[in-house]
Computed example of a mutant assay.
Amino acid sequence: MTVDLPLVARGKVREVYDAGDGRLLLVASDRISAYDSVLPTPIPDKGRVLTALSVWWFEQLAPVLTSFGASHHLVSADDVPASVAGRAMLVRRLDMLPVECVARGHLSGSGTKEYERTGAIVDVALPPGLVEGSRLPEPVFTPSTKAEVGEHDEAIDFARVEALVGAGRAAELRELTLALYRRGAEIAAAAGIVLADTKFEFGLGADGGLVLGDEVLTPDSSRFWPASSWAPGAPQPSFDKQYVRDWLTSSGWDRVSPPPELPDDVVAATRERYVAAYEQLTGRRFA
């Protein structure tokens, strides 16, 4: 992927270029990360799936954003260099807020582990008797810090969010995050998918307004489970990169040394899950 624009940043999955006029070009690679590490083996077409799904979700979520006086950062997915067509978005340049806004509608992953220890997820108390995969009584806001490549996200309480962005903005982030999650979960449910949890990132536009940025409701940023097989009490089959996490755990990787190459069958199965998520959610064929 050759882009004749100044490189602004290189993340775990994306490259960001300065497109001029207050715009950025976000290019999604086929890299995959897990446990805060970028794996050495790419997943074919992953960047195209992430881009196409984000573009679709920005359209679906626009009414929710408008109701909050907010917007999204997407300018165009068509007006991009030919070398990155299908895997790039032209977006507005934002002043990004230093919080990952996580919404959970089901108990899973690190949330389950903390709940088993404390009965809560950071400062969000949960009722007794929940197990892996349980639906929560109401979706909850469990934010985290935004880690640099190779570092670990840190779950934080709401008071920390207030300290980082101010009390008013923190309340706005929580309410908008939960509203977006509810709408996303509703759309996913209609497609036979459980949206267990997800994360959103927000920034401020030139006018100071709140803007939804980065990617939205993709298999990289969300846990998607087939509704037909959802059964609390055990890890769930998924359309997301949990499959890769599970393989890494079974491989004996210590999460400290460089991660191992993924076998061909794991690569193929992971690609299949990403494509299936796109096709089932959107009702469109991935080509």
Rank of each mutant, 00 (worst) to 15 (best):
S67C: 04
D95P: 10
T66K: 15
S67N: 12
V266H: 11
T218C: 04
V8Q: 13
K12N: 08
F239W: 14
S83D: 01
H73L: 04
D220H: 11
R104N: 06
G209Y: 12
W225E: 07
A171Q: 10
A155F: 11
R271Q: 03
E272A: 14
R104G: 02
D79A: 15
A231S: 15
L94H: 12
P6Y: 13
W56S: 06
L24W: 13
I43R: 14
K113R: 15
A188I: 00
D265T: 07
T282W: 09
A163N: 06
L217Y: 07
S250W: 05
G119E: 02
A179K: 02
A185Y: 10
P42W: 13
F58G: 02
P128K: 00
Q236D: 00
V102N: 09
V102D: 01
Q280K: 15
P40S: 05
F141A: 03
L94K: 15
L107G: 06
L136R: 08
L50E: 00
F158S: 06
P232L: 04
G184I: 02
A189F: 11
A163T: 03
E279C: 02
F200V: 03
A277M: 02
R87D: 00
R255H: 15
E116H: 09
G20H: 10
S54V: 00
P235K: 10
S238K: 11
Y278G: 05
Y115I: 03
S251E: 08
P226H: 10
D265K: 14
V49Q: 03
P42A: 09
Y115G: 03
V27M: 06
A227M: 11
F158I: 02
L24D: 06
S71R: 15
T118E: 13
P143A: 07
T142I: 03
V38H: 11
P237C: 07
D240P: 07
L178C: 01
L176E: 00
A287Y: 09
R183G: 03
V91F: 08
A277S: 02
E279D: 01
P81M: 02
A62C: 11
E172Y: 06
P260I: 07
V266T: 08
F141W: 10
T142Q: 08
G213A: 10
G209S: 15
P44M: 05
P128T: 00
G129T: 00
L107S: 07
E201K: 14
V55M: 05
R93C: 12
L25Y: 11
A171M: 03
A88P: 12
T2R: 15
P258G: 01
L248H: 10
R174D: 00
H152F: 10
E116S: 07
Y17V: 06
V122F: 10
G86S: 04
L65R: 09
F202S: 02
Q60T: 01
V211K: 11
L180Q: 00
P139V: 00
L39E: 01
E116W: 09
V64H: 14
A85S: 07
E138H: 15
L7S: 12
L173Q: 07
Y274Q: 02
S108C: 03
S250K: 15
D207I: 06
A103N: 09
R183H: 12
A196I: 11
P42G: 08
D240Q: 11
R135M: 09
Y243H: 15
S251N: 10
K12W: 13
W56E: 02
E279F: 09
P63T: 07
V102I: 15
L262I: 01
M89Q: 13
D4M: 11
F58I: 03
H73G: 07
S222L: 08
V244L: 02
